[in-house]
Amino acid sequence: MPSKNSLKDKIKKPNATQTFFNSYEEKLEETEKKQNDDIVEEFKDKNVVIDENETYDNDTNVVNDVVVNNEDEDDDYLRMLASGNKVKKVKKKKVFTSFYMDPDLAVEVDNIASRGEKGDKSKLINKAIRNLLEQYGVIERK
């Protein structure tokens, strides 16, 4: 009988597409971390304290003050998208997975996501499942 953990690994084993895309996400994280470290270093020299939890816009290296990874902000952000507005936001790392959706939901979700930018579809799905699981008491309310 294989150990519980090795069974778990087997069940959770990502498929090729997931592994391919995740490998790039990991690489991006490494570069981001390196860039963040560089910025921390830079600020250290100047004797300034900075919050490492802040997110950096990878392209511009600028600290973006609207972008802190905060549940309430996600909610506001998605609400604006849903109401047809265009907003700018930077995303955090996710695990790639796939599943079947009801066609009517898929259409609505795609409509909302097409008004935003990459990662917004995941954000919406995550938000919905998080709400449900909180309600079921599976995870704790943040």
Partner: peptide
């Protein structure tokens, strides 16, 4: 499998 590659590209790089 190819539809999944399309989905992943869409989600991550080209909405």
């Amino acid at each position: 499998k190819f539809l999944e590659i399309i989905e992943a590209s869409k989600e991550r790089y080209n909405p």
